[in-house]
Design a protein around this nucleic acid. Structure first.
Lengths: 253, 253
DNA sequence: CGCCACTTTGAGTAGTGTCAATGCTGGTGG
DNA sequence: CCACCAGCATTGACACTACTCAAAGTGGCG
């Protein structure tokens, strides 16, 4: 198995489009019959959004869950006075809106950072599917588990790190798994948005980035960053064990 | 050292203990046969821990998932230099260690804040159970969904709130749903631990608490707080729409 | 060309962290 | 029983990070 997520193989064995949706990728093929998958696909609705469009607002009554196929979505929550926090950025392959299972309202606003392709599904439809297909449940559980893990890392960084550490950690997170040293990395977030993610102000982010630039640790440009030597940045993240001056005292003697 | 797995087998309808474990409460009864439930219970191991005992350490290879039956557990992660962050406090009824489904290692340390009673289950056993019982999967999904929701709230608070707002928000979170006005609420966290949860220092927490005390907003004592008039605190949390001076500028023009 | 959004830079300061000293409390052992 | 100690909490003086306010630079687009 392990066929490419691209629509490569894609023998559309039925009216629906097998193999084209995040909810139905590799890991499900083994556990579902074709009939089951078609049944699922009947409930899926292909949708697209343009950059800056809102998928849904915080506080709205949830109806649908999304499986992102292409593009990135920014998830934000805010305090009543307008201060805004980016919770995470969802990328292709991730599920979005899983929080609705707890009932209540969407706990955040979802805004397209790029043009988006997604499959959405009514959450009661999904609930039925979950009841019938352990494989889908398993996929959902893994997805949630990973989101929670990412959330925990952000909590740690927000709680413990200095501005420098936050920014360098964020920049490092842009580097894809397969390290190809010197490429320019796309940076979809503005300074303000980076600030909203890291619990800083845009001026602080800008200053830290400028300093990194001066020190030849990064090269900046509109919509991208280049990180010639990630090791340099790692020394500044706090997770690389050495730090010049932590914001919170270290409890280790 | 750590655990004393008191495999106390007691009571009900079959050899296993129906109705006594968080994994198997009300919502499951409808969807599982007694036989199925017994099958699950066979895999569960009743364990107890004393206050301050460690259930597992960050970075350890995960073997088990826990369902908390009684007591509270503090989940912490830290940077290599020792700075420590409390991610959340798990209470009775919650599942603990769900993050292991993503594979890898425990992403946090779990330490008993009180004496603990829990059921633990090997994660491959649970995986089998999940594959066979949609009802259990559903329960796990809901639990994860709720944890994620709580994590998001902490992210928001860490990113946006001032020290005052953080502390008042934390204090309000101690009030149980069923409001019984003037009772003393148990406070299991020390000042240091509150600080580790809120991204502050213990001195700052202490000062804010002292100020609240001076202003007659709270009464403090060893191991408890009293909040005579929660409305007063709500005015200081930032979620109550009015705030004297937010730390981050409000982007709302 | 001029407008607008975004970014950068500067000067000043509020809010927290840091360091240090003291007080309080509960447990331990002589 | 009390003296001692260790851990937690409080308080003060001071330092410094990151925020605030302000102004100017940059680049895209009608």
């Amino acid at each position: 198995m392990a066929n490419k997520p691209t629509d490569s193989l894609t023998t559309p064995m039925c009216a629906c489009q097998i193999n084209t949706c995040a909810l139905c990728e590799e890991q499900l093929h083994s556990s579902l019959t074709t009939a089951q998958m078609c049944q699922i696909h009947e409930k899926l609705i292909r949708v697209t959004y343009s950059e800056h469009e809102i998928l849904f607002h915080e506080g709205e009554s949830p109806s649908c869950l999304f499986a992102l196929r292409a593009g990135q979505v920014k998830l934000t929550t805010s305090l009543p006075d307008g201060r805004q926090q980016i919770l995470r950025v969802a990328v292709a392959g991730q599920l979005l809106g899983l929080e609705i299972f707890k009932g209540g309202h969407y706990p955040f606003t979802a805004e397209a950072l790029t043009d988006i392709v997604a499959c959405k599904i009514h959450h009661r439809d999904l609930q039925q599917i979950l009841a019938a297909n352990a494989g889908v449940s398993w996929r959902v559980i893994q997805s949630l588990s990973q989101e929670l893990d990412r959330a925990d890392i952000l909590i740690r960084d927000l709680g413990l790190k200095t501005a420098q550490e936050k920014v360098s950690g964020f920049l490092l997170s842009l580097i894809p798994k397969r390290v190809n040293g010197n490429d320019a990395l796309p940076l979809l977030l503005s300074r303000r948005e980076m600030a909203e993610m890291l619990g800083l102000t845009e001026e602080t982010v800008s200053r830290v980035m400028a300093e990194f630039h001066r020190n030849k640790i990064i090269e900046t440009g509109k919509g991208f960053v280049r990180i010639p030597n990630p090791k340099e940045l790692e020394k500044l993240t706090g997770v690389g064990s050495n730090l010049p001056s932590g914001r919170n005292r270290s409890p280790s003697e």
